[in-house]
């Protein structure tokens, strides 16, 4: 076997800034990156139960587009079943939850998300109920405080003749029933 054309670098003479040092740095970064990729690719596959849990978790955030307010996870419709199958495939390909949701949003729009995203006009849905509650509570507090501060009116004096008449009639009634 002939001599290899590859030139062994003289490691004791490698210095930063030299071409060989830069080559070495690039090689180290490359090897580390490759190792990371290999580890990601060789991540243990999800168990069948874990995979189904993941599909259900992602499907429960997506709207079944042919149903009335049912999630992809809960709907018995054929299209929802096919969507679950697609989610399963994408999970098996290593796609993240966000990537899968983004895919469905790119096809169906934000309508496909059961919970409207918290930005833009949709923010009203999230903020308005709490705002209305706070304004209502503030109103109730102000009215209650005003009522509590109102002076209690004294009772009007009773006509003594009227009081006498009531007492007399009460006596007569008691005598009548005794």
């Amino acid at each position: 076997m002939g001599r290899s054309a590859y030139r062994q670098p003289k490691w004791d003479r490698v210095r930063w800034g030299s071409g060989e040092a830069r080559l070495l740095a690039v090689a180290v970064v490359f090897v580390l990156a490759a190792a990371g990729l290999v580890r990601a690719a060789s991540a243990p596959p999800l168990s069948p139960q874990a995979l189904e849990d993941r599909v259900r978790e992602i499907g429960s955030d997506l709207r079944c587009v042919v149903c009335q307010n049912l999630s992809v996870a809960d709907s018995p419709s054929d299209l929802a079943k096919e969507m679950r199958n697609l989610i399963r495939e994408l999970v098996e390909q290593g796609k993240s939850r966000q990537e899968i949701e983004d895919y469905f949003v790119s096809r169906y729009g934000e309508f496909v998300l059961l919970a409207p995203p918290k930005h833009g006009f949709n923010l009203l849905v999230w903020v308005l109920p709490f705002l209305a509650l706070a304004i209502g509570a503030g109103g109730v507090y102000l009215v209650a405080r005003r009522w509590a501060a109102r002076p209690v009116e004294g009772s009007a004096p009773v006509d003594p003749a009227y009081l006498d008449r009531v007492r007399r009639e009460l006596h007569e009634r008691e005598d009548g029933t005794a």
Partner: peptide, 13 residues
Amino acid sequence: PGSKISIDFGVYG
């Protein structure tokens, strides 16, 4: 098959 084209086109009916 699998409604893949339909889902890719965002078909809902």
